[in-house]
Nucleic acid binder design. Structure first.
Lengths: 252, 252
DNA sequence: ATCGCCTTTTGGTATGGACAAGTCACACTG
DNA sequence: CAGTGTGACTTGTCCATACCAAAAGGCGAT
């Protein structure tokens, strides 16, 4: 497979170059969605390599979500574009922005805090670093129903943007992305069932000890956390619904 | 290495048993967080196996988030309490299968029920239809810790497959997919914080009124629901973790 | 037609060896 | 002291081979 070395980037290990080549064939449609790929032995023969190397390449394709493998059956192509991996749940980062646009946030406080040992790993910082902390309540509309209580943490390098949060229409992370020039690579979200802290349940007009569904989101760029946001939703008013799709091709 | 075979579950491939054993050492603190694990060669010697097999086990530990590996440096322990039940990460259908493979399910009951008005929409059926209802508890391992209580509902057209659930290694939906020939198009998941029903909290050995994180999943094919599964996790033992990524191709 | 058995195909697991490529500690050199 | 190699060590990549286990397909008996 000298051709492979020439046409594709010659960089990287062999299994990685084969991984790229196979990924391109899938994207081009040479291996259509729904069809079986050549077997490991056939691919090993084609690329003039060992089965182990082919398996390593196929493993990468599996992790990408391109193919699905089953013993005795073969390797089936299940998606031809990786954007299908972007899909699940809140359907992409875009939907997060939409929630912010459709609702209304009132900021209650805005201060500087030093991270303690408990907070640091949750927001993605180090102990004793100073971050900006913004608290508030999100409403369905001005004068409407409260949706959740929010505490957001912004790292020191971006604290200068925080004053602009007041009166902002739209999402904080969107503003931070534009002001900082850092692009959000991924959002990590933790969902837990926790008792609502008393100070929060009172602010939302709920009884002490009310249960809540807590969402902790970290927006991550190449430079680390852009913003971490912790939302407490009253348990009886919140169901988090998400979908995981299996990529099927263009007709989806 | 006969000890491993005896003390741990003797089931599964060798690398998988070694994976479990090393995971337990990390949880017990035999390999403290921050320290380097023994090298691949040392482990291979200890377990009397080849380096490839050790590498496969270490790869699983990496995917679990227990360790971090770097060429030339070694394998470092970075977490000690991420067991399969505590953090669930769910970015693809494939990961759902993996959770089922890494854990262990005990079926407690198996009956036919008619759907009432409350249940029908939750499982994706119609009122008064007869479905099979399978209840059970998922464990980290035989004799390990309980992870969650499960109630699964299977539509009548697939009830004949239910007897095969007993003693099954792997996920129910995987089996149903194969037996029925219907492909899961998407999984819909609802996440809520609810009080655990008393009958369930008692079976898990928790006090009455314990809080839980409830996951309701529906596996949907072209012919409707393949299986609906409702999982109650003890609130203090469960964080649901997920990531929303910006897509990337195989070119990395 | 349906069931059960056998064979073939295919991915999964395991071995053992070889060399490449990072990382680190340490001695050496300017 | 600062920088530079050098060698030992560790994970990464790649190979050839062997056998196992699941799935599919063919075939014959019922």
């Amino acid at each position: 497979m000298q051709d492979l070395v020439q046409t594709n980037g010659a960089e990287g290990p062999l299994y990685s170059r084969i991984h790229r080549e196979l990924g391109e064939r899938i994207m081009r449609g040479s291996y259509p969605v729904g069809a079986l790929m050549p077997t490991e032995v056939e691919l090993a023969a084609e690329f003039g390599t060992s089965r182990s190397t082919i398996r390593e390449a196929l493993r990468s394709l599996t992790e990408d979500g391109y193919v699905e493998r089953r013993q005795g059956m073969g390797t089936r192509v299940i998606a031809s574009e990786i954007s299908a991996g972007y899909h699940q749940s809140l359907n992409s980062i875009h939907e997060l922005q939409q929630i912010a646009l459709d609702t209304y946030m009132v900021i209650l406080s805005d201060e500087q805090v030093a991270l303690d040992d408990a907070l640091a790993p949750r927001v993605g910082g180090k102990t004793d670093e100073v971050w900006a902390k913004v608290s508030g309540i999100r409403w369905t509309a001005p004068g409407g129903r409260p949706i959740c209580f929010i505490e957001s943490y912004v790292p020191g390098r971006l604290a200068h943007v925080v004053p602009e949060f007041h009166g902002l229409q739209g999402s904080f992370f969107d503003l931070l992305e534009r002001r900082s020039g850092e692009a959000v690579r991924e959002v990590q979200q933790d969902i837990r069932a926790v008792q609502m802290p008393v100070r929060i349940s009172r602010m939302l007009g709920l009884p002490d000890g009310a249960q809540s569904l807590q969402l902790l989101r970290r927006y991550i760029t190449d430079r680390g956390t852009l913003i971490a946001s912790c939302n407490w939703h009253p348990a009886d008013q919140m169901t988090y619904r998400m979908q995981i799709r299996r990529g099927r091709g263009p007709q989806d």
